[in-house]
Structure formats: C-alpha cells, structure tokens
C-alpha cells in the first residue's frame, strides 16, 4: 500500500508530506499565473486608452481579455484541473457560467429591446 495517489481540489495545497518536492513547482505555477495576469491586465489598460485600435471593437476585445484572465486565474490560482476529483467542481463551474450568461445577456437583450421599442417622446431618454 505504498503506491498511492492523492486527490486535489481547487486551491488544494495540502500535499502529504512525502510529496514535499512539489513545493518549488507550485511557486512556479503561481508566478506564471501572476506574469500572465499582469500581461493581460496591462493589455486591457492599453487597449482601453489607445487610438490605434478600431473604437467600436475595443469593448469586445476587453471582454475577451477578461475571459482569458479569468481562465488564467482559474487554472493557476484556483487549480481547476481536468482530473477525476475535479469533475464536480468543473460541472458546478459550467452551471454557474450558464446562469451568469443567462442573467447578464438576458437582462441586456430585454432592456435594450424595451428601450428601442417603447419609443419615448423625443428628448426623453431613459432617466430615473
């Protein structure tokens, strides 16, 4: 019974003491995550302020950068993996993503539609 494997959950650092040698590599994982996040954040701030890019496309680009950075955080900081002990976490994450997408995109679509179709008198924007 010496040949054992250990489950890992998101953020799980409690490696048994006989696997101590995995220490330096986990510092490396956090450092890679930090560098990638810093790069993506800097790109976001640059993209929001530059005149080099086509203006109307910038918000979409910012969303893509945010999704990428979220992925970096999930993998390098929260340690979401594809391992068998992570299946439940990934499924829950997928469900959460579904709910968030429905809530956000549904609200935006419905409210934009209402604003367009209710046709307020001229000069009266949606002001509360």
């Amino acid at each position: 019974m010496t040949d054992t494997s250990y489950d890992r959950a998101p953020g799980d650092q409690s490696v048994p003491l006989d696997e101590e040698e995995s220490g330096p590599s986990s510092i490396l994982i956090y450092s890679i995550g930090l560098v990638l996040s810093l790069g993506l954040t800097a790109t976001s701030f640059w993209a929001a302020n530059t005149n080099l890019l086509w203006g109307p496309g910038v918000p979409l680009g910012l969303v893509v950068l945010a999704v990428a950075q979220m992925g970096i955080h999930l993998v390098f900081f929260l340690h979401i993996t594809t391992g068998p002990d992570n299946t439940n976490n990934v499924l829950a994450l997928a469900f959460g993503t579904l709910i968030v997408t429905v809530v956000v995109s549904g609200s935006l679509v419905i409210m934009t539609n209402l604003n367009d179709n209710l046709m307020p008198p001229a000069g009266m924007q949606m002001r509360h």
Binding site: D7, R8, A9, P10, G11, D12, S14, D85, N88, N89, A92, L93, F95, G96, I99, V100, V103, V104, S107, L108, M111
Partner: peptide, 28 residues
C-alpha cells in the same frame, strides 16, 4: 478536504450569480 473545497466552491458560484445580477443592473 475535497468535500469541503467543493462545498465552498458551490458557495463561491452562488456569490458569482449574485454579482452577475449586480453587473446586469449596472450594465442596464
């Protein structure tokens, strides 16, 4: 520790759903 982390992960996702409602309100 895996069960505990999973339970806390569920809580975090419910928090994400709450934030998504606030984000929607802001965007609208």
């Amino acid at each position: 520790r895996i069960v505990v982390a999973y339970g806390f992960w569920i809580f975090l996702l419910s928090d994400v759903v709450m934030f998504s409602a606030f984000f929607s309100a802001y965007a609208v």
